[in-house]
């Protein structure tokens, strides 16, 4: 075990982590913004609105992320003249753009499906009550359905965030120097195979559990009003959870 090498490579690995976190944050933010309208369109009564979104979600959830990444990064080269005519080639030439683009569409598809389930899980009584009070459709969505759906979706969404964070490691295959990419370059240079990969793995592990911890704190805050005080007290007294 070559420990000093790992310590010396730590700054480089952490700079790779920065790229990983940057790509994750960008894809998550844009992906979530896309997912809300997509989920609503997926639930539309109009077949022409629903069907293309359904196809988009099915394609991105049913194929490997690596294929999607290659389709965008290498596949765009097949349409170079067309993309150049549209002025888009400068974007698709960049691995960084292709990575963020693909990961955004991927997480948008998964998140839209999570949100769809959550919107359908909003208790019907709440919608009826809002309608009885004379809320318009848009007000109903803004004040009742979407806030409730976001809360219902949160646990599943935290899983999606972790999956996306780990999935960013694939961008190292299209030449980006994220945490995995840096580890691969360093391994090729030093031949310290398992030391560096284990170090990178530990950094991923720490970040994953940090993300999960943050989400748990957020959930505790958001669901504070749903915790039953008697059950909490009993738990403290007996040291065991009540059924």
């Amino acid at each position: 075990m070559n420990l000093s090498l790992v310590i010396n490579s730590l700054p480089q690995l952490l700079s790779g982590l920065l790229i990983t976190l940057e790509i994750t944050a960008l894809a998550l933010a844009i992906g979530l913004a896309l997912a809300v309208p997509l989920a609503l369109m997926r639930l539309s009564k109009n077949f022409l609105v629903r069907a293309p979104v359904y196809g988009f979600i099915f394609y991105f959830r049913g194929t490997p992320l690596l294929v999607q990444l290659f389709l965008v990064y290498y596949g765009s080269g097949q349409f170079r003249p067309e993309l150049e005519a549209l002025g888009l080639w400068t974007f698709f030439r960049e691995a960084y753009f292709c990575a963020v683009f693909t990961l955004t569409l991927n997480t948008a598809a998964y998140t839209a499906e999570i949100l769809r389930g959550a919107i359908q899980a909003v208790p019907y009584g709440e919608i009826e009550a809002a309608r009885a009070m004379g809320m318009s459709r848009s007000l109903l969505y803004r004040r009742i359905i979407l806030p409730k759906a976001f809360r219902i979706a949160l646990p599943a969404y935290s899983n999606e965030v972790v999956f996306l964070f780990q999935a960013t490691s694939l961008v190292s295959i299209i030449t980006l120097l994220d945490l995995t990419g840096v580890a691969r370059v360093l391994v090729a240079r030093t031949f310290a195979v398992y030391e560096l990969y284990i170090a990178a793995g530990l950094i991923y592990l720490a970040c994953t559990y940090l993300i999960l911890w943050i989400f748990r704190r957020v959930e505790q805050r958001l669901f504070a009003h749903l915790r039953r005080p008697e059950a909490e007290k009993a738990k403290k007294l007996t040291g065991a959870a009540l059924p």
Partner: peptide, 14 residues
């Protein structure tokens, strides 16, 4: 907690 790609690299090369 660790990406599959990294585990594959670790097992195959490590």
């Amino acid at each position: 907690g660790v990406p599959e790609l990294l585990l594959i690299l670790l097992v195959y090369y490590g």
